[in-house]
Design a protein around this nucleic acid. Structure first.
Length: 573
RNA sequence: CGGGAUGUAGCGCAGCUUGGUUAGCGCGCCACGUUCGGGACGUGGAGGCCGGGAGUUCGAAUCUCCCCAUCCCGACCA
């Protein structure tokens, strides 16, 4: 049945909502797709709900096609399941928790690894049953510290999550590849411009991990991509190719008096005034960070990076897992051996863990602190004067840095994370002792992959990439209708023709949005632009010539088409 | 959790500095009439605990204090 605007539960807004600032948020509200209920919680109105269902349909079709099977877990889950993996505690404030009338703890599922693992454990017990991939499309709940950008980052959101179960690492790789290929098909069909980038496995454990990022300036994720080859990675996960070890001869290191130079800038200024030809890039900055590891005492870590770069705490954290980086140390009172502003790697006590960014190459010489108030050392050589206990990528990544694969320049852009695939490995299988009986009659521990698509977020991502000054421009595949029929003018023949061709279009399999409100032409056209249906067919003054006007919403191109050719013209597109 | 901004009709806003009739404008909504291919016009309507509480005052949307909420930036975030 055609969507009739006279009765459709839809109210378009002429002005942007005051609380929105990203395009998708403004447009989805103005076009009557969503309404805010609470921070990060939205109602889907009929027009938007159709789009959401269309996206879900594409996801479902491709998941089914790759052989995954759909299930549906409850969103309301008992605490016990999350206790088994420790996540009732680990998830912290982000978990929506509640109690039933008896006082028993429940939660609203933020993700469903535990449930899938338990389900397979309870039903399957033989190697003959594997591999298997299961998925669901369901609301997730996360009490985000700061929901933002409308449905781009909500506290309740619709997500497709799937899990693969395999006997071997090779099997897991095959399941991963199948998912990856399915995701490519899904995002192609959705009309999204996206990049597949290397990601950090992070708190989920596991190894190989890639994110699908929809390219958008409003995106929250920053990624690098090579201007020459196809390397792309989340900035947290960028590999830094270590410069080759240098074996040049350096003069012996020497300690200088450098009063009042606690920062790189003051140090460089002072040394240049004394005739040393150095820049911030020649200095070795040593930053003290606090590490917290679940179940362990807090500790500190000193990280050495070139002085012209900041430490990227997210990137550092991605490389010290499972420890978390709790921030930069600001109270040095408990560490008298560390001289704030004048820390150097040479002569640090054994008890202090010291690591360097890969860009601090073995054999390179640095200007750095001398571990004494107001003193620095020059010609401090990595490998001669100090030996770090490890190499950890921690320096901020910048546009123009070199690609770790081919050496060309990297660029930095932003994207919206619409999909994430990774090889979980045996973390959850271990937690639940998920084994199947192998062909030799002995139990085999199952290995898992985890794969997610933000369905509601994808709707916002699509809008972020498909809009203009006048409104949304839906890709045909997810559009709420194929054709928007607009009768215009006071001649009743216009509405009659609109009604007649609505029937014909539908008979030809087209989905129709009919503007039978009797609104003025300006209102009807403006709403058509805002609502973004791919083709707008206007019946009006051209009827007397036996024609209607067909407008392509994306290009703005308008063509007059003979009434008899309308159905053919629109179905061919 | 830190920084900033904002709360007045369904939506977008003005009024607050300098307290004083019945709190105003645009959009939207209702009725009637005119209009009818790019957000038309007229007339008449409906719609407000001015975020909440306490205070100052003869009198508070307006001044003071406290609280709450929302948005943005940061921290945080399978």
């Amino acid at each position: 049945m055609a969507l009739r605007m006279s009765t459709l539960f839809l109210r378009t807004l002429r002005e942007d909502p005051a609380d929105a600032d990203v395009p998708s948020h403004k447009l989805l509200v103005r076009a009557g797709c969503v309404r805010r209920v609470a921070p990060g919680v939205y109602t889907w109105l009929p027009f938007g709900k159709i789009v959401l269902e269309n996206v879900a349909r594409v996801v479902r079709e491709e998941m089914d096609r790759m052989g995954a099977q759909e299930v549906l877990f409850p969103a309301l889950l008992p605490r016990e399941v999350y206790d088994a993996t420790g996540r009732w505690t680990e998830y912290g404030d982000n978990l929506f928790r509640l109690k039933d009338r008896k006082g028993a703890d429940y939660l609203l599922g933020p993700t469903h690894e535990e449930m899938f693992t338990l389900l397979v454990k309870s039903e399957y017990s033989s190697y003959k049953d594997l591999p298997v991939s299961l998925y669901q499309i369901q609301n997730k709940y996360r009490d985000e510290a700061r929901p933002r950008a409308g449905i781009l980052r909500g506290r309740e959101f619709l997500m497709k999550d799937s899990y693969s179960f395999d006997l071997s690492d090779e099997g897991l790789q095959a399941s991963y590849d199948l998912h990856r290929a399915a995701y490519v098909r899904i995002f192609e069909r959705l009309g999204l411009d996206y990049r597949i980038v290397y990601a950090v496995a992070g708190a989920m454990g596991g190894s190989s991990s890639e994110e699908f990022l929809a390219v958008a300036p409003s995106g929250e994720d920053e990624y690098v991509s090579c201007t020459a080859c196809d390397y792309a990675a989340n900035t947290e996960a960028v590999e830094t190719s270590a410069p080759p070890a240098l074996d040049a001869e350096h003069p012996p290191s020497e300690v200088l008096d450098t009063p009042d130079t606690p920062t790189i800038e003051t140090l460089v200024d002072l040394l240049r005034s004394k005739g040393y030809d150095i820049t911030a890039a020649n200095t070795l900055k040593n930053v003290v960070v606090k590490l917290q590891t679940p179940g362990k005492d807090d500790e500190i870590l000193v990280v050495g990076v070139p002085g012209d770069r900041e430490v990227d705490l997210k990137r550092l954290e991605a490389n010290v897992y499972p420890a978390e980086v709790a921030g930069v140390l600001d109270d040095f009172s408990a560490y008298p051996e560390l001289v704030r502003g004048y820390i150097g790697p040479q002569g640090l006590p054994e008890s202090v863990r010291y690591v360097v960014d890969p860009s601090v190459a073995p054999g390179s010489a640095w200007v750095t602190g001398a571990n004494a108030e107001g003193r620095h050392a020059v010609n401090v050589v990595h490998g001669r004067d100090f030996t770090p206990s490890g190499v950890v990528p921690a320096a901020e990544v910048r546009a123009g840095d070199l690609c770790p694969r081919c050496g060309a320049a990297l660029e930095i852009n932003r994207g919206i994370e619409i999909g994430h695939i990774f090889q979980l490995g045996r973390k959850f299988a271990d937690a639940f002792e998920l084994d199947v009986l192998g062909p030799e009659g002995k139990p085999v521990r199952v290995t898992m992959g985890s794969y997610g698509i933000g369905v509601s977020r994808a709707v916002a991502a699509i809008v972020e990439q498909h809009y203009d000054d006048n409104g949304i421009v839906w890709p045909r595949c997810v559009a709420p209708a194929d054709v928007h029929v607009v009768p215009v003018g006071k001649d009743p023949a216009a509405l009659e023709a609109a009604e007649k061709y609505t029937v014909e279009f539908e008979a030809a399999g087209l989905r129709v949005l009919l503007d039978d409100r009797g609104a003025s032409a300006g209102v009807a056209f403006a709403d058509a632009d805002l609502l973004g249906v791919p083709y707008v067919v206007t019946f009006g003054r051209t009827l007397k010539d036996g024609q209607a006007e067909v407008k392509d919403r994306a290009t703005g191109e308008r063509t007059l088409v003979a009434l008899d050719d309308l159905v053919e013209t629109l179905t061919l597109r």
